[in-house]
Design a protein around this nucleic acid. Structure first.
Lengths: 375, 375
DNA sequence: TGCGTTTCTTAATTGACTTTACAAACCGAA
DNA sequence: TTCGGTTTGTAAAGTCAATTAAGAAACGCA
């Protein structure tokens, strides 16, 4: 066990200042002093440190009504960036994201025939072209964040179950990670795609210490769970696998199957049952289509809220996007009916939360490392 | 905002040492140094501090095979105690609990005609008699912890919904708290009864930083949720109100009602439906009785586990106690069938987790206050 | 008695913060 | 123009709680 010492205090305070700066906008040392409660000599030292690290830049004088003008400072958004990648079943998405969460133009490519091709051929090409196009300094790019559609254990580097990317069983992807990291000389960080998405949505909403449940309705259904500002991974790194949920009052022993919820809410089921492709649709507005999905979804949401008493549930994924507002309103109405507690069911705000989240994980680590450097 | 300063480091380290001591058994300064990673001068200072505060006592020399004998120390279990109280519908339970979690002989009394009588007449009498009987110093009793069957907001002191204690609507119980606190000159801490129970069970299992879901099956059904060692209260202090959960695939608009799960699993429903009183039964072993309860319960558990990926769910409450092992096994089998993730469904270990938890809340606060004292 | 080993303690040093004091910059009114 | 009030930024000294280093104390055993 490591004891708690002075440098931890330093890191906490540096981090407090950093989080305020990241909210955007200009501020002054004096304002930071007021907002954080940290004494002004310490704030000055921290700002000085961040300037040396290139994280902060001076931005002229402010103009208050009275007194000495403050020297305004702001975060240098491009002091660090990261590549965020999401592996979907059919596509790979990637972008470069900076400290402010600005997403530079993305790259979208069809996935390879198997994971190997995607990881060792297509993805490196995508990253190369992103790096070539990016208008940020190559050296400022701190790593690659990768979201994959399956449970992932970072200790073993094993993906436990991910049919979407054509894995038939538990697969260790450490070799791919290593190859990628070596090729670009950067750290590679992997997590589940929905976990990446909830992190991205959380960042896009500029939340801090809050709860956020993100439900991804796409090829399958999954949840990203942030409680008290922390992403929950769970005991076996499978938190949020809500596709396994069951809502049945006519239980028949031996005839129940895990995966009931996913059998109702999933892209191919919708395609088959209703004969259209939600990727390009507006006739999805048909009430029976939305009902077929919104009823179990509303039950799911209201059950989750009953358990956790969280205030915001965000819906994302391709089904959410294509089903439109009628669907959203239908879910809201049914949740309202079922759920005693108040909960706000919202559409995702971030255009591509997965990519943003994947990059954010890398950036968070990089910033943490920088902020705990000596001097 | 308060900045992070040196005394916070001190408190963290003191707390680290305290938690090790609380695990029970004897130890030495040298062993604490090894276990915590804190330097030995600091450990000595902390132990010295705790001795001054009466929290720690010397207990002779140890006997290693070689070298200087350590001066063993141990926690003074009775340095602090607290009264734990649980208000049930029909009964009031109270005990005095010490730092080790030892529960001194309890007091059980029938509840009053209304909350006022319970709180202002019966409970004070109970506490008086407990204090008279207790073999700990009166001054060591640091407060009264109170668990109530309803959602409770500590900021407003309002109980939002608690038919069991005959509240027909939101009720501010601040006056009762104040009266109790003044009468015994101690702080009074209130929380939901199931929250108290999960804290107690957690303490009884000597967990640290773990997850624990406690399901209370009694007059109603409720969950206590500890994630990462922290009790979750939720956004509106109603976390764990799983009675509102619904599992129905034959949803009819306008005919669904919140409270579906509680309508299935609850004491009076069992009494009425099966014509016996689970308080005194063994014929509860009837398969159809257990099935009627175990099916929805197993669905609930497996859904919760799918969402949170937590490893342990503990069943408690009067129904759990009276329905016996057949019921428990039935639940386990159905969870196994429904749930892809592994989860251990267990009976509660603690005899009276509510009372233990209620007292623990008070003790935790008292210890925190002591450990952040100067000198 | 002396040596190796472990435990506990003291003394000096370090790191990061705070308080205090003050210099710098700015505005507006006498 | 100067002077006082106000706000910002910096320097110096002091505080607090940790650490490292050194050594004293206690013990077993040859």
């Amino acid at each position: 066990m490591k004891s708690y010492i002075a440098s931890d205090v330093r890191d906490v305070n540096r981090n407090t200042v950093f989080r305020l700066l990241r909210l955007g906008g200009e501020t002054s040392r004096a304002e930071l002093t007021r907002l954080t409660g940290i004494s002004s000599p310490t704030v000055i030292k921290i700002v000085e440190f961040m300037k040396e690290k290139g994280l902060v830049e001076e931005s002229g004088a402010g103009s208050p009504t009275v007194g000495r003008k403050p020297q305004m400072i702001r975060l240098n958004k491009d002091a660090a960036s990261a590549v965020g990648v999401i592996l979907e079943g059919e596509y790979l998405r990637a972008s470069i994201v900076n400290l402010a969460g600005d997403i530079y133009p993305s790259s979208l490519r069809r996935a390879g025939a198997d994971l190997q091709e995607s990881m060792t051929v297509i993805l490196p090409e995508m990253i190369e072209s992103l790096l070539a196009l990016a208008h940020v300094d190559r050296a400022s790019i701190r790593g690659i964040g990768l979201g994959i559609p399956g449970g992932y254990d970072p200790n073993t580097h094993v993906v436990n179950f991910a049919p979407l990317i054509r894995l038939t069983g538990p697969t260790c992807i450490a070799p791919y990670e290593r190859a990628l990291g070596e090729r670009f000389a950067m750290p590679v960080v992997v997590d589940n795609d929905v976990n990446m998405a909830v992190l991205g949505e959380y960042r896009a909403r500029a939340l801090d210490g809050a709860d956020l449940i993100y439900l991804s309705l796409g090829t399958g259904i999954g949840a990203g769970v942030m409680l008290g500002g922390a992403l929950r991974h769970g005991n076996t790194w499978q938190c949020g696998e809500i596709g396994y949920m069951t809502f049945m009052d006519n239980y028949v022993p031996g005839h129940t199957h895990p995966g009931w919820l996913e059998s109702r809410i999933n892209l191919s089921a919708v395609r088959e049952k209703f004969g259209f492709d939600p990727y390009h649709v507006e006739k999805a507005l048909l009430p029976d289509v939305t009902d077929h999905i919104s009823v179990p979804l509303a039950i799911c949401i209201s059950n989750v809220v009953s358990l956790l008493d969280c205030d915001t549930v965000v819906l994302g994924g391709i089904l959410t996007q294509s089903l439109g507002n009628v669907f959203l309103e239908s879910v809201r109405a049914k949740v309202q009916e079922l759920c005693v507690l108040n909960v706000s069911v919202e559409r995702q705000l971030c255009v591509d939360p997965g990519v943003l989240g994947a990059a954010s994980v890398v950036l968070d680590r990089a910033i943490k490392a920088i902020l705990s450097e000596q001097e």
